[in-house]
Design a binder for these strands. Structure first.
Lengths: 67, 67
DNA sequence: ACACTATGTAAAGTTTTCTTTACTTTTTTA
DNA sequence: TAAAAAAGTAAAGAAAACTTTACATAGTGT
């Protein structure tokens, strides 16, 4: 699964720490998610989409290897 | 977090088992998710949205208690 | 060069998701 | 109304998410 958290953060000029604080997780969780180290919960994804004023699908994308 | 998996399944006339098979999880995972027993991964949510031809936000909704 | 901020990473431990097996209850259909 | 299909539930274990602490690296400004 791909993600463009880095780009969305840049659009809002937010650091990983700021995003983490805003959605109530640790900075490491944001970093690891951004790096594709693991797949976040749907609740996290929804909160991220809310912060970035977009859809979950605009942040996370299924890849062929996921199917 | 709320969800309307049951309604979306009904629209497509799918059983829990059929949905489970389609997205590659066990039937119990679908049942538990539908019942709100736990929050699925973003990948599962994306796959569900794909099956139901809608957005993740159309299936899962943040509640006040999540914030 | 130095301090400062942001990012990356790692290890240990906790919590949650998800699986498998199995059984019960409800709903559908013949 | 009996059989069959679907849904609900539970328990034990595996796998993955997430936390905390801690430190290393990269970039930015003074």
């Amino acid at each position: 699964m791909k993600n463009n958290l880095k780009v969305e953060r840049a659009k809002k000029d937010m650091t990983q720490a700021q995003l983490a604080e805003k959605i109530g997780v640790s900075r490491q969780t944001i970093n690891a998610t951004e790096k594709g180290k693991y797949i976040p919960s749907t609740l996290l994804a929804l909160k991220m989409a809310s912060v970035f004023e977009c859809k979950v699908e605009d942040i996370f994308e299924i890849e062929a290897s996921d199917l």
